[in-house]
Computed example of a mutant assay.
Amino acid sequence: MQMRHAVHVGGAESMEMHVVGPTLQDVAAEAGVSVSTASRALSGGKVKAATKRVVLEVARQIGYKTDLDDDLPTPGRTGNIALLATDIQNFYTVDLFRSVVLEAQAVGYRVFLADINITLGRDQLIRGILDSSDGVLVAAPRIGDDDIRRLFDPKTTVLVSRRVDGFSSVAMDDSSGMFQAVRHLASLGHGRVAYLGGDDRSRADARRRQGFEDATEKLGMESLVLGPFEPSFEGGVNAADALMMEDDVTAVIAYNDLMASGVLNRLLERGVKVPEQVSLVGFDNSMLAQVSRPKMTSVAMRQNDSRTALQMLMAMLERNGSDDYVFEPETASATESLIVRESTGPAPKE
Rank of each mutant, 00 (worst) to 15 (best):
V263S: 06
D305H: 03
Y195T: 10
V252E: 10
S306L: 09
Q311G: 15
S279C: 08
L280R: 11
M314H: 12
L196A: 15
T216I: 08
L280K: 10
A186D: 13
A240W: 05
Y195D: 11
V278A: 03
G282Y: 03
S223P: 07
G198N: 01
T297H: 02
M312S: 13
Y255I: 11
M287P: 04
L317H: 08
E213Q: 12
E318N: 14
R209W: 07
M314G: 05
V225R: 13
G220Q: 03
D257S: 14
V263T: 05
A254G: 10
G191S: 12
Q311K: 15
L188H: 03
N265H: 11
P275R: 02
P275D: 04
N265K: 08
T308E: 14
R293Q: 05
E276K: 12
M316D: 08
S232Q: 09
K295Q: 11
N256Y: 10
V291R: 11
G235I: 11
S292A: 12
S306W: 11
A260Y: 14
N285V: 01
E269T: 00
S292Q: 13
N320C: 02
M245F: 11
D323R: 03
H184Y: 03
S187I: 05
V237P: 01
V237L: 04
S187P: 09
T308K: 15
R203L: 10
A239W: 02
A254E: 03
D199A: 06
R209D: 04
D257F: 11
K273Y: 09
T216L: 04
R183F: 08
E213S: 09
L264W: 15
Q277Y: 04
A309R: 01
G220F: 05
A194H: 01
N256P: 04
S286Y: 10
N320A: 07
P275C: 06
M244H: 06
R209V: 13
A186K: 15
N285S: 12
R208Y: 09
M301N: 12
I253A: 04
V193P: 14
D199I: 01
L226E: 08
N304I: 00
M312A: 12
R192F: 03
T250P: 13
R192D: 06
L267H: 09
N285I: 01
R302P: 05
R208G: 02
N304K: 06
L226G: 09
L317Q: 12
G262D: 02
Y325S: 04
E234Q: 12
G321W: 13
N256L: 07
L185P: 14
L196D: 15
L280A: 07
E276D: 11
D199C: 02
D257E: 14
V291M: 10
L226I: 06
F212Y: 15
E213G: 03
L317G: 13
V263Q: 04
V299H: 10
R203Y: 04
R266W: 00
P228I: 12
A300V: 08
Y325E: 08
Q277S: 11
M312G: 12
Y325A: 02
E230V: 01
G262C: 06
D200E: 10
Q290H: 02
N285R: 01
V182F: 06
F327L: 03
N265E: 06
M314P: 01
A251P: 14
E269I: 00
R302V: 07
S202M: 15
N320W: 01
Q311P: 03
H184F: 01
L196G: 14
F233K: 05
